[in-house]
Amino acid sequence: MLRFVERSWLLVVLIGLALAGYGLHQAGRLAPVQRAASDVFAVAQGPLTAVSGRATGVIDSVRRFEAMDQENADLRAEVARLAVENLRLTEAAAENVRLREAVGFKEANPALTILGAEVIERGGQGLVTGRVVSRDPSPYLSQLTINVGRRDGVKEGMPVVTPQGLVGRISRVGDRTARVLLLTDTASAVNAKTMRGRVTGVVEGAEEGRLALRFVEQGAELKVGDIVLTSGLGGSFPAGQPIGQVTAVRQKDIDLFQDADVRPIVDFSRLEEVLVITGFEATPVETAR
């Protein structure tokens, strides 16, 4: 009880002093004391303000650093986005060129009905990645899969080309995909002729992505550098599609035919878009009378 009385007394004195100071301040009687106190405090406030300013500056710097770090991250993300965008635009520009060539191909071949397609899978020896989903597990096959199928009107046997030249033919058709047997597959055989001498033969797929021109008559004039085209004989392929260029001729008098090595015009390792020829006028087969 005594302690409570003592504390109450102290409380009353402190409240009284505060009220007296408030009264003196209101009356203007505390001004000299306030000025003196300000001068004294100013001695200590100067350095303290400087230190505080530096500390604030450091904190601001840290904050700015964090902001810069964030800004840097944002800029990096922006650069990455722009790089991707740049790649996409470059790709779109390249695709535009290819598609323009494809349009040019269509205009140059008005008799053909063509269907655009995109390579989604490819396989075979020595092929590199494009937009590849899967490859053929066999090293002995040269085939690829495209993203058009039966529902797009694709049928087995249809020729597949690029604006550069012949790619192969459809060997298997699904509803949404089709498998293309490339010229370089050992199961591939195409009736061909040379552009210069109109020498006819059959271009077959050989090992390791090569082509061979076979069954060329012994007397026929076949030279290195000759351009080989589809002959259109047999009706499987439209005539005049570029196949490749002769790189070596093998001729022996004891053989019935002469052969040649042919370098494909189409780079099979970089195929991305191909054109499936869904309709064309087959070259009529000439019969002996």
Partner: peptide, 21 residues
């Protein structure tokens, strides 16, 4: 055996390639 199976179809058996691989 794989190449022999391949040779039963229209694919030519790449025995040279086999020898190299």
């Amino acid at each position: 055996v794989y190449l022999a199976a391949l040779a039963t179809t229209e694919h030519a058996a790449s025995w040279g390639l086999l020898a190299r691989n």
